[in-house]
Nucleic acid binder design. Sequence first.
DNA 1: ATGAAAGCGCTAACAC
DNA 2: GTGTTAGCGCTTTCAT
Lengths: 347, 347
Amino acid sequence: MSKNVTVRDHIVDKKIVDVAKLAGVSAATVSRVLNESSLVSEKTKIKVLKAIEEMDYHPNAAAKHLRSQRTMTLGIIVPDINVSYFSEIIKGIENKAYAHKYKVLICDSDNQIEKEMEYLDLLPDRTVDGMILVTPRVSDDTIQEYVKKGYVIGVVGRAVVHEDILSCKTDNVKFSNEAVRHLVEQGHQQIAYIGGYSDSLENYERMEGYMKALKEGKIPFLPSLIDNGDFEETGGYQAFCRLLERNQSFTAVYAANDEMALGVYRACRERGIRIPEDMAVVGVDNNRITEYLLPALSTVEQPKYEMGSQLTEKLIAQMSGNEQNMQKKHVIESTLIIRESSSYKRD
Amino acid sequence: MSKNVTVRDHIVDKKIVDVAKLAGVSAATVSRVLNESSLVSEKTKIKVLKAIEEMDYHPNAAAKHLRSQRTMTLGIIVPDINVSYFSEIIKGIENKAYAHKYKVLICDSDNQIEKEMEYLDLLPDRTVDGMILVTPRVSDDTIQEYVKKGYVIGVVGRAVVHEDILSCKTDNVKFSNEAVRHLVEQGHQQIAYIGGYSDSLENYERMEGYMKALKEGKIPFLPSLIDNGDFEETGGYQAFCRLLERNQSFTAVYAANDEMALGVYRACRERGIRIPEDMAVVGVDNNRITEYLLPALSTVEQPKYEMGSQLTEKLIAQMSGNEQNMQKKHVIESTLIIRESSSYKRD
DNA sequence: ATGAAAGCGCTAACAC
DNA sequence: GTGTTAGCGCTTTCAT
């Protein structure tokens, strides 16, 4: 008693029976009013509503959750909420969830797979009804394993090889092809590629688009023009420096995201390499920062908000049992935005 | 039956009694092991742990919450998760919460006070044990009202006039004074101020710091050099344009946040006004973007992560009943960062 | 050290 | 249309 005193102890919550007594009905009737069941007469409904109002009654969520076996809560696992790519996706998820009366639990993993695995336990815990992964770290097999057990999982910004797992992403091959083709059209013959995590499906696909564009431009593929970062500024910086050190000249870089392109900018500034005159740069994501850079960064718009929103719509539909012939692997359009960093034509 | 079929129906969750049976003990004993009660013999403890492992048992969160009257969940209300000022604070909150085994529910209000009031109901709902407000919209009186009822609320980036309400912020008067004094020292005699919401306490304080610096520099205060935005880029742009139209010349602007300073940049670029030669600019927040601007923006660092983290620490302490003479209104240091946008000395 | 039993606040099946 | 009752899965006296 004396040890577990918390602030909460001051509050005496009203219960449904208290409302029932005040309204002169049974708890069941109050519950019916609360849940908008039609089998209540207008007269008692008004009585009950008045009592609820009067007492400032709020139904206890935990009791509801226990009884109904659902929490109306979605979890989101992200590597870093502070990266705008992720926060825009989260915003899309949150807004759609709100529209369907779902709450959103945010799980920032700080880029640690251990934390992500831990957060995944919120599913068997029944803390959340479903989980959205916006991380490349949790493996396809792990996801598949949870889904096979019956848990609801959706994925944003990537796909999962197994069938029947909800995902929403863009077409990596297509937009990478477009981005690199644009560089080729600007007259570049040696184009470097800075990828993200080297072993991810997304990376293979972006590489594929890159190679396809080279082929179309009849440009030989040089493995020495390929390096990988980790999707962060520093990783991009380091990868670009390694590329320079190889003494394989190049006049353009395609970076797998804007953060890494930022690293390229820094390296160029340090070495007096002019963008776009000496080095053209194209990124991916269309982070807000890209517009403010000098020169403004050419990039591939990723409809982040839309990806989050659309996946959430489908996830909620699935949880409601409306999954008749629903497309599980959703691919959304992305478009190349040409700005100053690649607008210098070579001959 | 046929209407309410959801994916969840496939899953048959294990209950504590199932584990009890397998281990050959009672449910109470399993519960004791789970809650690390000391009154269990080592031998049975091992038996139980083995059974839990074997069944892959996960305690049901809702049942726990109902029984224990706490959800180990914190809510955060923010106007826009996609603004880095907020997402950094959220990150600080999340990390601290995680360290104390709390979960975090994110409530993005899209800048709407109605949504914020709605989210506040998660407190009487008992969906969350406490709520953190990172928004200027919910009034001091409303906050006070909830706290008086016994609900746990903390505030970040502002303070509440009433006593005994947890808050963590920086010293607006002090850093504004420092920022403007810096401009005075650079030789500026006409310095404009673009505030945030004109009627907020924070705005008064920043204005106070501004006026104090003018006084110290023996510079007359001109009301026509004051305007207000809404803390967003567009608001800053518009306020700056209005200032220009007044035909009251000025050579420097102090903007109440970096977003609005960004609007100043845009307006200057459109009109061929050079920063810092024709116009010095200082912002507030030290958003990441400020480093990448050309010229790099001088700004006041707000320890956003720290503010979120420290407030959360106190909030959790309070919920645990450890509030013996705890300082409720916490003020944290902020420092002026001088970059290129204000580094041009006038004579 | 362990078990039996009550109860957290709600909803839904069944009875009237 | 409304009330009675059982039970969701857990923790915590109380008894042994």
